[in-house]
């Protein structure tokens, strides 16, 4: 009996083997590689023989005046994205839900889902063209309305909001899917009862639909908490330039420039380690809260 069980489980272990090897090397390997955050890392000497300098890399990072700016930008941008990215799809989902003609509903959905599937390379390229200060479509429109042209991607007053706006533009449509699914899950008899009680459409939305969506809203808000230090590397990297570092430089772009452009591997890894640890705490907390309050389990 025991032997038979062993034989069966042996297959299961074997199936997992290739994936385990890859994950060990390319996910757990880099975790070991984090030790270079505590070293004066020199590639020629390697991880083991580079000089151990304790917390010096961290002290150096803290002494940089840019660090606080970057941390502030990261949290500020991702928090705004979080809030806007939560509210916009709810509104659109509620409005889509009022459309009874299926043809139009499908058509709207087809258009608003599209940007989600394209990379920030494509969207960044399009934005560079449209937001160009001299001949871009956006500024031509502003000028025809009598406004001064705005250098959206080169002006620190505008850049963070361009990031938030374009992120919402890319994702709001696709994010409505979850809410639309939640809307179909609301018991129709609740609407019938409300109607008999004389509730109009708005009162039905206010007292039946919205309360029915609260659980999914809380769940998504909680889960997005784990992303607080992810301000969107793909997007920022493809839209920013030295002029807007002040308002748009985030942890991930700083790590890239420090590490891969300036070859300060130890320092860059120290910044990365800080981000990984804080993110770990936030992601874990968000899963724990999601489990407690919404009974959400990932597996």
């Amino acid at each position: 009996m025991i032997l038979k069980r062993w034989a069966r489980e042996w297959y299961l272990h074997l199936m997992l083997l290739p994936a385990i090897i890859i994950v060990l090397i390319y996910s757990y390997g880099p975790m070991v590689g984090l030790v270079i955050a505590f070293e004066k890392y020199v590639p020629a000497k390697g991880m083991i023989h580079s000089k151990w300098i304790g917390l010096d890399n961290f002290k150096y990072v803290i002494s940089l005046p840019d660090t606080y700016r970057v941390l502030y930008n990261t949290v500020y941008i991702s928090f705004m994205k979080m809030v806007a990215g939560l509210i916009a799809p709810i509104i659109v989902a509620l409005l889509l839900n009022e459309i009874r003609a299926m043809v139009f509903k499908r058509l709207y959905q087809t258009f608003i889902y599209l940007p989600h599937f394209l990379s920030w390379i494509i969207l960044g390229g399009i934005m560079l063209d449209i937001l160009s200060p001299s001949s871009g479509l956006a500024n031509q429109l502003l000028q025809s309305l009598g406004f001064e042209p705005i250098f959206f991607l080169g002006d620190n007053r505008w850049f963070p909001y361009v990031l938030v706006g374009s992120d919402v533009w890319k994702e709001f449509g696709f994010s409505t899917i979850v809410y639309l699914a939640a809307l179909t899950g609301i018991n129709p008899s609740l609407y019938e009862a409300a109607e008999i009680d004389g509730a109009n459409r708005w009162q039905q939305t206010r007292h039946v639909t919205l309360p029915g969506m609260v659980p999914i809203m809380i769940l998504l808000a909680t889960l997005s908490l784990g992303q607080i230090l992810n301000a969107g590397f793909d997007q920022v990297f493809n839209l920013y330039n030295a002029q807007v570092y002040e308002s748009g430089d985030i942890i991930d772009t700083l790590v890239y420039r420090l590490g891969l452009q300036q070859a300060q591997y130890g320092v860059a890894t120290a910044v990365g380690l800080f981000k990984s640890v804080v993110s770990f705490v936030f992601i874990s907390l968000s899963y724990i809260f999601a489990y407690r309050f919404a009974n959400y389990r990932i597996f």
């Binding site: 069966r8 489980e9 299961l12 272990h13 997992l16 994936a19 385990i20 994950v23 090397i25 390319y26 996910s27 757990y28 390997g29 880099p30 975790m31 070991v32 590689g33 984090l34 270079i36 991880m47 991930d252 790590v255 890239y256 590490g259 891969l260 591997y265 860059a268 890894t269 990365g272 380690l273 981000k275 990984s276 993110s279 770990f280 992601i283 874990s284 899963y287 990932i298 597996f299």
Partner: peptide, 30 residues
């Protein structure tokens, strides 16, 4: 009950969703 180490393996994979070594160590590993 059918696969005793299941939970261990699940955590082995899920942990990589929670924590990562980050850009520079991944670059070194590659």
């Amino acid at each position: 009950s059918h696969f005793r180490l299941r939970t261990v393996y699940v955590w082995f994979f899920v942990l990589t969703m929670l924590f990562s070594g980050g850009l520079i160590p991944l670059y070194m590993t590659v």
